[in-house]
Design a protein around this nucleic acid. Structure first.
Lengths: 203, 203, 203, 203
DNA sequence: CGTTAACCGAGACGGTACGTCTCGTCTTGGG
DNA sequence: CCCAAGACGAGACGTACCGTCTCGGTTAACG
């Protein structure tokens, strides 16, 4: 959808300063005023940019938001190329999921994430972009951790790891987005345990 | 938040015809033009109603949508007071979940549901109402089925049934709303199996 | 084009206060910022009015300007129902035309009049409205004065009075609008004399 | 204000091709889309020229239009160095004025002329340029014809010929620009007759 | 059994934001 | 240095809705 930045020939003469100002403004504004009051007009004003500069390079508010997230996640890079792997799968998943819900419970992230999530829910094009550029890299490292556990004989051999990822993160994300209940540590721990053991009575 | 309909004393002279016209118009419109272009003005025009009549009785677009769903679910009543209980939990869950994804894959329901879901995601008040009036009744009958299985010794005795419901429906709903993948029968079956058995290697 | 004001049944519920605020704002703004920078947006802001309220009732900037002139000319009414008639046609025409160029030389009137005149030049619909509502009444009283002179035997019996009006005012208005020369008293006097006597050598 | 073309030293490397393309595009565009929708962007695009090339050499849209007219009038040169002079002033003026209104009634000329005339009405700098470069040459040949008539004793000896020109052309141009009435042959003839004879009763 | 107060449709109102268009400036890269 | 190309900040355009606010015109309960 958007041009990869380091392509000076194709996306000729685009202003990198304006691009960053727009993404930063979008991320900050959505936190401050909420998603419902987030407007292209507001982003442009805050970024000190003409509206056309936004319309020229992004097809929708959601696309701006997505790229703002990408910029952020690239900014804080270095470590999170992999999930922790202590050998204890349950402990590692619990650690990661607790960190996730901590973020989700932090308004600094909750509001923009929620905005992005609901944009994605309504815009298939954006959803594809989101899946490709934000979700997939994260899913990869989750899959990697599960693969490691599977190799160690800790998971069923015929387990579909994609489904497994959904089993762990799906309930949490769904509860978050739908506000069907509080995202507590206890809940997270219970999800991890139940996902690993299954609902059935274990002998 | 909203007046319960059968309360003739409080909501004195309210026009039932207008109410139904509004709810119907809202549901139809959201299907036809999509959520992004759904407007109070549009609903009022389609329903042949003054805008004030909508603002008088509902606090938001989402509240109208929610009540439209309630009207619908009351309309098709009779059976769905309980989940099927053949004694085979896996089969019953699979049946129900397959029916759910069939609905979710049907544009007739997908669009309005998605609209409601994202409104709920942004509006805690609406979320509470949604949980109370639409989600809870459904969750109750899910819990009832699981409780029956637990009594039959098919589920772990110390299992938190609320978490269990999330383990089954959460992954599916999350995949639906985020479009993180297609909602196929195979996926549903795999979710049920994995939820019941757990991720771990079973001896 | 525009509803005559005193028609409360047809132009239902129109706000007279907003109407006057818009017309006043338009007239003032065009003086202050000039025609080129006159914007509907600016008029609305100055009048404390939504843009839609202007678009609802007027088809163009020029129509607003025209009605502003009408409001003004109605406001200063009372006397100018007729041109002076002392019996001396040349003196009377000179008096009136001198007053006209004085107005045309006054920036307070020059700028808005020029704006209206050029709008009229580009918009035939507006031109018709202008002719009907602003120009015709004025032309009537000019014709009346000439008719009086004709009756007194001061003008040729077969003279086309419409052309006669153009002969007197046309040169002045054209010189004003095209800035083809300064509008001095001498010029005006010369026009009146020449129009009355004709170019030919008089015996 | 504008560089006179034949000055190869001052306007060093200016592209004559671009200049002609711009003037042609401007003239054509104003006919096709009308004055209101004429834009520098549009002219540049149509001429296959960068916007800067227009801004570099002309101070305003009107200046482009003016020069476009000049180019045209130079193009059709050869004859119009003088008005016809058959000795019959009335006949000659009628001939010329009929030709003028024919042009004014032709949309091919009406629209661009009107555009230029109203630009001139709002821009004194342009008005000066217009008077100097387009209007004056034409006025000169009109004056020449009147001077000839004056020498022949057909006009009053003390007649101000500048006023006389206004008396003949002013009414017509004003009626044209303000659309205060149709420009018919009858009207033109009547103007010429009335201008020559004057309004007064002739003995 | 009229009064009257609330609801109703309609839609004008002051606003905000939309997405587009054009302005006039600036920058890039190629004669 | 000119030129085509076109990104940029700026801001007006005309439209769509927002949520509030009269208007009359029903319409049901109360007095």
């Amino acid at each position: 959808m958007m041009t990869q930045r380091p392509s000076p020939a194709s996306a000729a003469r685009r202003s990198e300063a304006s691009r960053r100002a727009i993404l930063t403004a979008a991320f900050e504004l959505v936190q401050e005023v909420g998603y419902a009051k987030l407007s292209i007009e507001g982003i442009a004003a805050r970024a000190g940019v003409g509206k056309q500069t936004i319309y020229r390079w992004w097809p929708s508010k959601g696309a701006v938001l997505l790229e703002a997230f990408l910029m952020l996640s690239e900014g804080e890079d270095g470590q999170p190329a992999a999930l922790p792997d202590t050998g204890d799968l349950r402990a590692d998943l619990t650690t990661v999921l607790r960190a996730t819900v901590e973020e989700l419970n932090d308004p600094r992230f909750d509001v923009p994430m929620r905005a992005l999530a609901t944009e994605v829910a309504h815009d298939p094009k954006l959803a594809a972009d989101y899946a490709e550029r934000l979700d997939r890299p994260l899913r990869m490292i989750k899959l990697e951790r599960l693969r490691s556990a599977q190799r160690a004989g800790q998971l069923a051999e015929d387990l579909d790891l994609d489904v497994a990822v959904d089993m762990v993160w799906g309930p949490v994300l769904n509860r978050w987005l739908q506000r069907s209940g509080p995202l507590t540590i206890e809940y997270v721990d219970s999800v991890v345990t139940t996902a690993l053991n299954g609902l059935r009575h274990r002998p």
